[in-house]
Amino acid sequence: MSLAEHVRILGRGPGRSRSLTRGEAAEAMTLMLSGGAAPEAVGALLMLLRMKGETAAEIAGFAEAAAVALPALPQPDLDWPCYAAGRTRGLPWFLLSARLVARAGHRVLLHGWNGADTAIRQGLAQLAIPQVGPDAVAKALADQRLAYLPLERLSPQLLDLLTLREVLGLRSCVNTVCRVLNPGRARASVQGVFHPPYRLLQADAGALLRLPALTVIKGGGGEFERHPAKAVTGFGLRGGHPWEQVFDGLLPEETRRLDDGEADPVRLSALWEGTLRDPFSEAVVLGTAALALETLGAEDGLSQARALWADRHLPCAA
């Protein structure tokens, strides 16, 4: 089978082209990951999809096929993709949010790739969050209930498709596919987007993939990280059904941005240890953790996040 037929479907011209079906999208992804597709056809397919605009069925089909090719992983409680490029995000305070969720007893699997932006990888190292390959995920989740799986170790083939952005000069749907990939088949996922229209696209793809619980927000730089002084709208799923909710800001309106110019990853551990006092950054952590906890079923995620933060220096319960 050749990728040419899939390119033809998308590129026949006005009145004749159409979107790929979910099955056709799965076939196309299988071909692209196999290495057997002509690179010209891969580039054509990805750019035609960008020009047309991806559908939820296409994203779901791509993600299904990509997931089939992944190594087997233990099932975490929460899937947390990290694939933003760092614009307008600043320090990755959401890593502390993930740590709080893990302290609540939930197994959290972070996975991602951020191109030339090193902030997340530096933050992981600063916070001693294990960066592991597929064969070490189980131990990390058992020991710390928290692990980060780099895309280059999870699927080098998918990374090759993602980094075609450097060749094509434009983002492709592979970035969205990675966000909805859910490599550990968790029953709950939190996802961030940079462009608001993708919130509903990813929510609809999650529904097609039969994900029970999902929260998608426009987050800092495209990560799942909320600005505490602004209202945020969450899209996604609860009990497998479409869900949408507006969350009020946690702080008075202010002009401070998530990207406040601070880049020293030591600030992450300092905030956790209590040697740094920064109410704004603390509110980022608590607000983000609250959304994640409510995705996992908490009735009052913010109260739980605050309690976890107050007790963060106590030993974790077994």
Rank of each mutant, 00 (worst) to 15 (best):
T275W: 09
G192L: 09
R145M: 01
V137A: 07
R18H: 08
H313M: 10
Q122M: 10
P130D: 05
R185H: 14
A207H: 14
L161G: 11
L314T: 00
D143Y: 07
A292W: 10
D311I: 00
P252I: 04
R306D: 03
A138G: 06
G35Y: 14
G236D: 00
A290M: 07
D117H: 07
L146A: 01
Q245I: 12
L141D: 00
G184Q: 05
L258A: 09
L200S: 12
R306W: 08
E273P: 05
A67D: 12
P279S: 03
E253V: 15
S281G: 06
G206I: 01
E54F: 10
D300P: 00
Q75E: 15
R121H: 02
A41T: 10
A104E: 14
R257H: 08
A26W: 05
F280I: 03
R153G: 11
D160N: 10
F247Y: 15
V167W: 15
A263E: 15
A292M: 08
V42Q: 04
A310K: 11
A298R: 05
R145I: 02
V246S: 13
L149K: 01
E152P: 04
Q75I: 10
T30W: 06
A317R: 06
A289P: 14
G287S: 11
F62T: 07
T176Q: 15
G261S: 07
S303L: 04
A142T: 11
A231H: 14
I9Y: 15
E253T: 13
G297A: 10
L291Q: 11
L70S: 06
S97Y: 13
E5N: 15
C316A: 14
L170F: 14
S2M: 10
A125N: 08
L258H: 08
E166A: 11
G105M: 03
R99H: 09
D135V: 11
Q126M: 12
W272Y: 05
G35V: 10
F247W: 15
G169F: 07
L159C: 13
A119H: 05
